[in-house]
Amino acid sequence: MTQPEQVTFPAARADATVDAVVARMRALDAVLPARDGVAVFNRVYLTVTEEIGRRLRGGEFPDPRAATALDVRFAERYLTAVDADAAGLRPPACWRPLFQLRRHPGVRPLQFALAGVNAHIGHDLPLAVVDACRAVGCEPADLEDEFEHVGEILVVLEERVREELMPGPDLLQLADPLTHLVGSWSLDRAREAAWAAARALWALRHRPDVAGEFTDRLDAVAGLAGRMLLTPLGHRTPRPR
């Protein structure tokens, strides 16, 4: 299922800034229906990117140039997937479950948000680290502080997302399949795996055949996890009053 034709954007530029990718996410937010699964993730990611932009302006990153390169190239991979789907093309496997099930009435907002985060971290983040290293002229170890700083923001945001999109703890929630489904996915584990994958891809940069195969496997695994996170659960029964 594809987005309306008007939800299209020009290809991301090599000199794109954090403000530029924020503008593109805001444009998406303005045209997508609020319940659309991509819109749910986009709102989450827009909040993260706006926060990173504020912290960059506040001088909180040790190397602002490297942090900007990482953040922009990270965001561009998501936006490129959006562009591909809007054009009727096949986005990476990690994003396909979200685009295919974005309007499914049995998938809840928290599932859409986490499926997007899973795709973006499980596949896009390792590639963005390599992209940023090439752009800045450094190695992954030189970006580790920036990687960790971005990760800390993601952790805070994930906690906020779970609080806002998932009902508070009660006996009904403990029996809700959503509780068990989202509890099976860990942002911390995903970040650790992404960093290990980025280092492996960098080590394989002179072996494009092997690096390509490794990237395909990352994509497939993230897509499989995303499909499980988007298992339709139906609407939650309201708590009796």
Rank of each mutant, 00 (worst) to 15 (best):
T68F: 15
C94H: 02
V130M: 08
P91I: 07
L172P: 02
L171Q: 12
D83R: 11
P169H: 08
F41E: 01
G53H: 10
A128G: 08
V107H: 00
P105V: 04
L171Y: 13
T80D: 06
G88E: 06
A34R: 13
F41I: 03
V31K: 11
W95L: 03
E152P: 00
L114C: 12
Y78D: 02
R162K: 07
E146A: 10
A93Q: 05
D142L: 06
V129D: 02
Y78V: 03
N42W: 00
R162Y: 03
E51V: 02
R54W: 05
V40L: 03
E76R: 06
D124N: 15
N118W: 10
P64R: 15
P105N: 10
E152D: 08
E164L: 02
V44P: 00
F99A: 07
L89W: 03
G37I: 13
F61K: 05
E164H: 00
D71I: 15
R73T: 09
A87Q: 14
A75D: 11
F41Q: 01
A67V: 08
N118P: 04
H104W: 08
G37L: 10
C133Y: 01
T49L: 06
P109Y: 10
A66P: 11
H104K: 05
H149L: 01
A135S: 10
V156A: 14
P126I: 06
L101C: 10
D85L: 13
D145C: 10
E148R: 15
V156M: 14
F112W: 08
R160K: 06
A34M: 06
A132T: 06
G106S: 07
Y78C: 04
F61N: 04
A81Y: 04
V155P: 00
A69G: 09
C138I: 14
E158S: 09
E159R: 15
D142Y: 04
V44L: 03
